[in-house]
Write a protein that binds this DNA or RNA. Structure first.
Lengths: 254, 254
DNA sequence: GACGCTATTGATCATTTGACCAATAATAAT
DNA sequence: ATTATTATTGGTCAAATGATCAATAGCGTC
């Protein structure tokens, strides 16, 4: 028992040192009494702002997206709370765990931001295909090139989140199939219903998506100067894709 | 003082519970005596393997690359040590801090794996340009598509490491300039010495790199089926790039 | 203006985690 | 064999980190 007591004493002493390294955490007396007065003297005494729960949870979610996009999901709840100007404990009133907060972020970014109208936009054959493609990718790339979206998409993928994988495959199946079908129709070739998408066709699509998304990676991850004219660059990429695609159709037909 | 003692006791009890959750850490008696026999009985009693420091540090570095590529740099040193089959403390004999270990990883991946001969390969005008480009990108993409390389490149970039940024800009300046210069020469247009690389030219290069790297991202990050024929896909991307590039030169000239 | 509801806070807990160190055991030298 | 050297280990510390909770104070209601 005395050996344990020794360890205890040894442990207690540096605790003070530890605390002093941070931003004046408390400096409190041993007794629990007179704590209010003491606390007000030592701490900055945050002004308490009472918000409607709806507003507060939205504020936290938005703040968390910005915070985790910057720091990764290893970012600490204390720092997030500080950045939001609220206490750390409050986070747990709106989100039972850090993990659940992250789940909400996924929902917000990867589910809610996927627009179903993209599909109808791509299939409106009253508009020339190249125009449809240009319009679609202009809008789509706005999402891809958003700093927060891109970084969290990468963090979630690296972390092995199933939703990132699901998003990636879903995009493949829905958009890729649609575009190739339209491209084939544009070239007078039978659609994907008859002959499924070939690997070169799929890779042509991946190539376009990769080059467009990479603009975002460059900008949001490696902080390398993006093109001054992003829209123009995307347009040119789509045009190249269109040319290469028509050429591929011609070659594949023979 | 008694209040402190209380806290101590309260603190001590769960320690045992905690320990039990892990893989049988110790279960040791209060006295320091008879520890060897006790320890051998309780713990798996790791067989001590003594290695040449050169070998050991290399083993640790290689293991750390695999480990952090999978887990990200938030991965814990204890788990890394376990995966290596060594004690956690040993890591600190070879690398003073976790941070320094990570620095070594950067050195290994982003400095040592950059091949200077790539430049000479690209400029050998006795070989047709398209062949040079195909050869270069076949070799270069081998690095880009390596699971560990790609994931750590992304993690380091997201983490804001300066070396990731430096690597990205260095690639731009050295490879991009070289390729565009060769492409211009191939089209009978004045080189980059006279007229610097234009934004469309740079973006054409970024597009190629993006689409090639994205194959790796797809494979290593999102675990989406990569093309069965990666080399062929890369070749096709280079061919498309070459065609689009020549077209761009033709248009730019007018 | 007192009251009640509940959003908010600061303190605290249990555990995790990077780092450190004294003791130990391979291996080489004698 | 004995000894010297040092690679290796288990244990430990200080700090950090997700989570919990009793106390508190902002805001609407009467």
């Amino acid at each position: 028992m005395d050996d344990a007591a020794l360890r205890f004493r040894a442990r207690m002493k540096p605790f003070k040192t530890n605390a002093m390294k941070k931003t004046l955490p408390k400096q409190r007396s041993k007794t629990k009494h007179a704590k209010t007065a003491r606390r007000r003297a030592a701490a900055p005494a945050r002004k308490r702002i009472r918000l409607d729960p709806e507003l507060r949870s939205g504020q936290i979610l938005r703040g968390a997206i910005a915070f985790f996009a910057e720091r990764g999901f290893g970012g600490q709840t204390r720092e997030l709370a500080q950045q939001l100007g609220i206490s750390q404990g409050l986070l747990y009133r709106y989100f039972p765990t850090k993990e659940s907060l992250i789940e909400q972020i996924y929902e917000e970014l990867f589910v809610k931001r996927f627009k179903p109208e993209w599909d109808t936009l791509l299939t409106d054959r009253s508009v020339p295909l190249l125009d449809r493609l240009t319009d679609f990718y202009r809008d789509y790339s706005e999402m891809l090139h958003d700093d927060e979206w891109g970084r969290i998409y990468l963090y979630s993928g690296l972390g092995g989140s199933s939703i990132a994988r699901r998003f990636a495959t879903h995009v493949t199946q829905s958009i890729f199939t649609r575009v190739i079908d339209e491209l084939r129709h544009d070239c007078g070739v039978p659609g994907v219903a008859g002959k499924p998408m070939s690997e070169p066709e799929a890779e042509l699509m991946w190539g376009l998506h990769g080059s467009i998304f990479y603009i975002g990676i460059r900008k949001s991850v490696y902080r390398v100067e993006p093109p001054r004219d992003i829209a123009g660059t995307v347009r040119r990429m789509v045009e190249n894709f269109y040319d290469n695609g028509r050429e591929l159709m011609r070659v594949s037909a023979s």
